[in-house]
Design a protein around this nucleic acid. Structure first.
Lengths: 193, 193
DNA sequence: GTCTATACCAGGATAGAC
DNA sequence: GTCTATCCTGGTATAGAC
């Protein structure tokens, strides 16, 4: 593949490697395959990223930052709408045939080192916490029932559901309906007590 | 590792390989690692399973059969109780530090051949269908609301949630609470219309 | 910053002795 | 049915020329 000019090759490599991990998994991508996508020879990659695990750690950190920025753009007033908008981020990921980068890493947990694991752990915790805050806010606003709804547990269930949906979308295209299943789950906790 | 006598080495290999896949992933296990767990040399495995993909296909088929048998033992009268009991199968899997075999394969979809994919596809479809039947039955029995609950969508959401929970359990032990999140989701669709 | 050449190891697979 | 020896391939990594 030809290499577009004007853009640091380092960023090019980070993006190409991320795509490979999100489509083939941690062990399914190699310096060889990355070299092929980036239009460079495999040993040249070592000049930018001496060790594979450093490359993966940097990709994970960048993914976490960029996803956080994406989530920050969600500005609906309604808490329920914010949750639906959040699910759209996953629907879009599934639509373009990618998995969640951190989900992919979690699936091959034993293949990564501590630095990578720490980033993924933090990412998961942040996402669940963001969802929990949505639920709490929805309860405060009267959109979501207070009785019978535990914000922390429901947030974990929602997040697990999104991760699972992305996992299943790999084998079943029809699972792209992440937003519809999210609506199904959230629809049942709305309304007054 | 020493090899217990009296049991066909073939079954021994199938079990050891399944454990390896469920803990290290498809690409994380090799004939070498399997040989080490089974107390045999790597080339000897080829006598029982000439090609790795055949071995994986057989493991997947066996897993599907055994899981189906397990699900068949769920005999609670209440549909909600059956769903909770079903979630316990996943909770137990997480507890012993394993992932769902088919979930692990889905995560490394590009690393397996068509025969394996067909088995995993069938497994997922069967499980979602089983859950859907539970929801429909619950509605018929008056346990689960009819209005606003789409059995197919809710079943897919439930199943995705279970798969996601198992995925997340790999990085976060506290995610073992698969049953509590299942209760949280199912609790909101119960009661009359 | 990228290349060629190369070292080294691991994985899957086969041949043939025992 | 299991072993040793061996082949081939691919993956990570380094050295050193350009």
């Amino acid at each position: 593949m030809a290499r577009p000019t004007g853009r640091p090759i380092r960023n090019e490599l980070l993006d190409a490697a991320r795509l490979l991990i999100q489509t083939r998994g941690i062990n399914g991508f190699s310096y060889g395959s990355l070299a092929a996508s980036a239009g460079i020879k495999a040993p040249s990659i070592h000049h930018h990223f001496p060790h594979k695990d450093q490359l993966v750690a940097e990709i994970a950190a960048q993914y976490r930052d960029e996803f956080t920025d994406l989530v920050r753009t969600i500005d609906a007033t309604s808490a329920v709408d914010r949750i639906i908008d959040y699910s759209r981020l996953y629907a879009e990921t599934a639509r373009v045939g990618r998995s969640c980068l951190c989900g992919a890493i979690a699936a091959e947990w034993s293949s990564v080192g501590e630095p990578v694991r720490d980033v993924v752990d933090a990412f998961f915790a942040e996402q669940v916490e963001w969802l929990r805050n949505c639920v709490v806010d929805g309860q405060r606003r009267g959109e979501i029932r207070v009785e019978g709804v535990d914000p922390a547990t429901f947030a974990r269930a929602l997040f697990a559901h999104l991760q699972g949906a992305l996992l299943l979308a790999r084998s079943d295209d029809s699972f792209g309906g992440v937003t519809s299943t999210t609506r199904e789950l959230v629809g049942h906790i709305t309304g007054g007590d």
